[in-house]
Design a protein around this nucleic acid. Structure first.
Lengths: 188, 188
DNA sequence: TAGGACGATGGCAGCGACTGACATAAGGTA
DNA sequence: TACCTTATGTCAGTCGCTGCCATCGTCCTA
């Protein structure tokens, strides 16, 4: 394959997704991914920091998306509701990526190293949410705790969104999970 | 050094802690750790799954400790309070390890790979707490959400326990963090 | 249109984490 | 003492990842 074909990064992501699905993350070498994408191992590492990162290309964009949504939320909203509003908007961030998300999550679930990276991205998301809350005037440790609560809600909603066969929309899943968290935390 | 010296595992942990502190995690090779402990690289990997795991030897014991405490909590307690009770008891699990905990946390904070492993251990803790709650009859997703809330509380309490110069006891830190989480989640 | 600047890729050498296979020595036991 | 088990050593090898330099497309400009 000649050089200079367009979208090398995208081809690498696609090849990695296929190979990780076909034979598993550990059983796939970076050289194989690069080869399927018509590139070399060296070039793979110019596009991605390591073998795991190729599955997490969208993390930064999601983080910026959520931080922006929190910043834009009406001042009248309580911190946790500003976060919830941002999370509800995620359905617009994942347009028709449900099948892709399923495949990706299936790969991650099968490998501990990938789960670690996934947790790291969520932690980074939490930090970004907390920072956005502080910019709204929320103090510490409220900002951090609210962000962590938001991430817990997001995890539950996302898992259901992936697993469910019937199409409940993401907004509703977020609202439900937040209500469940409230019920569990509140004094009886 | 002759073979068969006692506590090889402990010596490896000590050597790793020293070297990671002195020159950083990345700048330390496993061969160096093993050498300082009077052993070889191969033996290191018989005691620890990888270079990071040497800092997380206590994770399994803490997990079992917390699960046991949740199981032993009075049936009358709400799920979140059963978890809080377990977390409060952690001060008995860290007897006089405050200085050690500081040093260890300082190492982890300086390296992303170690943070990933730390998050993984906390996630594992959360799974164990959720399982213990299900054994108390708590359903889903309440069990998972309660466990996640507990971990968020634990993080805040632990961070303060490490950072604070004045000796507030762990029980009080846990209670305070839980109250703050409640305030942040509750409708206004 | 020739030439040069610049960015993306290839090729290669090398380090370090980690593993499998086999040898060897220490400690306990009959 | 002979044997067995277990902890350790030795060695070779794979793979993730990086630095360095060469090479090739593409675009810009004179």
């Amino acid at each position: 394959m000649a050089r200079w074909h367009p979208n090398a990064r995208g081809r690498l992501e696609q090849a990695a997704l296929e190979l990780y699905s076909e034979r598993g993350f550990e059983q796939t070498t970076v050289a194989e991914i690069a080869s399927r994408a018509g590139l070399t191992e060296r070039t793979f590492f110019r596009h991605f920091a390591d073998k795991r990162e190729v599955l997490f290309g969208g993390a930064r964009a999601l983080q910026e998306f959520l931080a922006k949504k929190v910043a834009e939320a009406p001042d009248s909203l309580a911190p946790i509701d500003a976060v919830a509003t941002a999370l509800e908007a995620v359905e617009f961030f994942f347009p028709e990526r449900r099948e892709y998300s399923r495949q990706r999550q299936s790969i991650i679930s099968a490998n501990a190293e990938l789960q670690e990276r996934d947790l790291m991205k969520l932690a980074s998301l939490s930090v970004a949410l907390a920072e956005a809350l502080r910019n709204r005037g929320v103090g510490d440790p409220a900002a951090g705790l609210t962000a962590e609560a938001g991430i817990a809600v997001f995890k539950v909603a996302y898992e259901r969104w992936i697993d469910e066969t019937n199409q409940r929309d993401f907004r509703q899943l977020v609202r439900t999970a937040l209500d469940e968290l409230r019920a569990v935390i509140t004094h009886q």
